[in-house]
Design a protein around this nucleic acid. Sequence first.
DNA 1: CGAATGGTAGACAGATCGGTCTACCTCTGT
DNA 2: ACAGAGGTAGACCGATCTGTCTACCATTCG
Lengths: 187, 187
Amino acid sequence: MTKRDDLIKTAFELFYQHGVHSVGINQILAETGVAKKTLYSHFASKEALLEAVIAYRDERFRLWLFGLMDAHTDPEEVVQAMFDGLDDWFNDRVDVLMPFQGCFFVKVNAEFLQHRVNELCFEHKQAIVDYLVRRLSQHYAAEAAQRLASQLALLKEGAIAQAYLGKDRQAAQVAWRLAQGLLSTGR
Amino acid sequence: MTKRDDLIKTAFELFYQHGVHSVGINQILAETGVAKKTLYSHFASKEALLEAVIAYRDERFRLWLFGLMDAHTDPEEVVQAMFDGLDDWFNDRVDVLMPFQGCFFVKVNAEFLQHRVNELCFEHKQAIVDYLVRRLSQHYAAEAAQRLASQLALLKEGAIAQAYLGKDRQAAQVAWRLAQGLLSTGR
DNA sequence: CGAATGGTAGACAGATCGGTCTACCTCTGT
DNA sequence: ACAGAGGTAGACCGATCTGTCTACCATTCG
């Protein structure tokens, strides 16, 4: 593992747990054992490091989630794979995502306003909606696929929020039950 | 308006928009025109001010939301009142809540870990679930009321998340459609 | 061998933070 | 008129922040 990767991974863990503004550069350096000059040779600023961290988490999360869903073709199974995955995440059965602390992008987004990172967080969420639309379009009309994707995204975000702040580790199952109603009735 | 109230209101607006750690005491003082000594005569620390801000927002939000829902008795109307209210909030038609910037409690919660304010944020969410259970218990069995409240809370949080980070101002209507399916089928 | 490269350790600068304290001003009640 | 209360303005303190810079060390390569 390169020092650059080590910095990104450690920064992610600290940002994820304590928030971006609560974590200092020196804390990240102490945790990794990397020298300050090395950090600033890889990243122009703390903000540049944060952007790399966002890209890192975005890639990890999407690869994990889409990997689960790619294994199915039936739309109900595709969607179930997502909520089953969320259930695993909420209950810390997914090593690659680190212990569950809510949605990293929601948390980062909460700390900034009219800032470049807000756009990056939005793009992550949008990429997941786009994937849902793409998969659902194989079995539904364009309009229905779009509507279903919006509804499923809402259920996914609701589940994450309830699992974290609401401390309901079974929120993914609640969301999945609601999603089943959607897929069967085609509301 | 007392200086104390002015401080709380201004601190809320700044914390809500930019995050707690991004806003300094001096910024709040400059905005209100209150002297630093006056602030520290009312609040022991920035953290104490934050706790007062949380209590302020909690009261305002609950009074607004419960006020809407208290006006109805039929469970479907009670729930519809909630999602109609959310729709008004997302589209800035509720002066008392300030321009929509997502859920204040979710944002504050994101900036702290194992901290007193996390508990306060949780209590706000719990108070709303408790209210839902109480209202639904008038027309449903205890178990069904509990299950419905969990589902509705998930839909509410999902709508807020989608409206803010997802930039979907119609998220409340999406959530309401899903809620209608719940109430009619009694799933 | 000896120069260059790329790392470490950490002092340092400049800004900003939360919080304290002094000095002054302006009302109010007697 | 005058004492006291409560406000303002802002200097000030120590801590901490991001980011720069110097000095040194280890490895590698000609």
